[in-house]
Nucleic acid binder design. Structure first.
Lengths: 232, 232
DNA sequence: TAGGCTGTAAATGGATCCAATGCCGCTGAA
DNA sequence: TTCAGCGGCATTGGATCCATTTACAGCCTA
């Protein structure tokens, strides 16, 4: 049906689409996922849907209980903290490696992405919905650092962590907190400065602090709100 | 059929069994995996086998090409280095956390495991096959450190890396090199000493060096030998 | 009226069936 | 003799089918 560029992997496509639904918040955390419904929605049979769900389970994004179906996983607050501690270490490593490898073009890219965030942080306090391009700019910032680190395994591990938590939740946590958005931007600035100076230690340390700080913020948010959780 | 302790997850069981086959080297890297053969071997239909294979693919242990089957993945040498750089960072973090949390019992356990390795390193130069209990002791050593770190996410990430490379290969790389086995033991000693002193920085650093060193060794081995690769 | 029981409906998990794709060997012609 | 074309075979991927299990609603009884 879909043109299917070249991939013979229909199941991966399905998995990606379901993941996107969850990431966007279209499927809120805690919501049960019906195989039949998803199959109908995507115009395929239940078989590939099942395999896709199992992939997502493996990635930790959903939970499957035998004969009881799959639900979008609700991470416990302490899990968020733990995961972010790991992520901090990995991103810090990425920043360290990037310090020695990053190109001028990539540095410019980082500044551009951070400028988007800066504008959003200072400008509109509450820009309606979770500000999709803000989220995007944030993602891009970290992605560029990972690319500059030039270690696919590292990137992959970081991706795995990110894919384990619905993105919209992270955005929501930031959406209401102008203070923290500005802190974010300043921390990004510090990272960029360290990278510009090719200072490996500082790059590593600033990035670690940044991610830890984001993790604490997100954890606190989780502890407060159980909103965006499906109640049915 | 199988007693199936409590898990309603037959597919996970299948995946674990296939993974074990690969880890033990019973299925050498590069070998094609036939769904029908595996299904017959385990006495189930192809459906759960397929899902299990996809899980393994997701974990990076095997490669699947559309309509062309699955093969046990042959990691490129540089991949090993990259992965071990990540693993080093994570295990180092685990050691740092462990330094502040490890119990006396766990320290004793570490010494016990390392004593097994010490005996193997000094005693029989080439103890026939890959010395399964040596491998086991090594695994246990790192597992205990992870447990002491008390961060399930961290443990999980480290496991994921380990599960991406057939274990027997790592053992084989060590089997022939008495020099390196002794180095291993000394490095473990250093880690234990740092943990005993509750010295976070030293624990982190010694562990990082240890894993990096193991990674370099394994990478070099990979570059030399393409043995244990399936030729068919 | 509350609580427990049962029967029915729905959803999952595994097995089987069918179509699609790739591989390999055979045949025939240059 | 060699290479292109062709057809059968093996294998995978997706759809469908059936058994098993769980959830829920209604009913009966204390």
């Amino acid at each position: 049906m879909t043109p299917q560029t070249d991939e013979g992997a229909l199941v991966d496509d399905i998995a990606a689409r379901i993941r996107a639904r969850i990431m966007d918040g279209e499927l809120p955390i805690g919501k049960p996922l019906r195989q039949a419904a998803l199959a109908a929605e995507f115009g395929v049979s239940r078989t590939p849907v099942r395999e896709a769900l199992r992939q997502l389970q493996n990635g930790g994004l959903i939970e499957m209980q035998p004969h009881r179906g799959a639900v979008v996983r609700v991470p416990a607050p302490w899990e968020v903290r733990q995961a972010y501690e790991v992520r901090a270490e990995l991103e810090a490593l990425a920043a360290r490696r990037a310090a020695a490898r990053i190109t001028g073009g990539q540095l410019a890219e980082l500044r551009r992405h951070n400028d988007v965030l800066r504008a959003a942080a200072e400008g509109s306090g509450t820009s309606g919905a979770g500000a999709p391009d803000t989220t995007r700019a944030n993602d891009c910032f970290h992605t560029v650092v990972c690319q500059a680190a030039d270690n696919p395994w590292l990137s992959r591990m970081i991706d795995r962590i990110n894919e384990s938590f619905p993105r919209n939740v992270s955005s929501l946590a930031l959406a209401g907190d102008e203070r923290h958005r500005q802190l974010n931007v300043r921390q990004h600035d510090a990272v960029v400065a360290a990278l510009t100076d090719r200072d490996e230690d500082r790059a590593q340390e600033t990035m670690r602090e940044h991610v830890i700080s984001a993790g604490e913020h997100l954890t606190a948010w989780y502890e407060r709100r159980s909103q965006t959780v499906f109640h049915g």
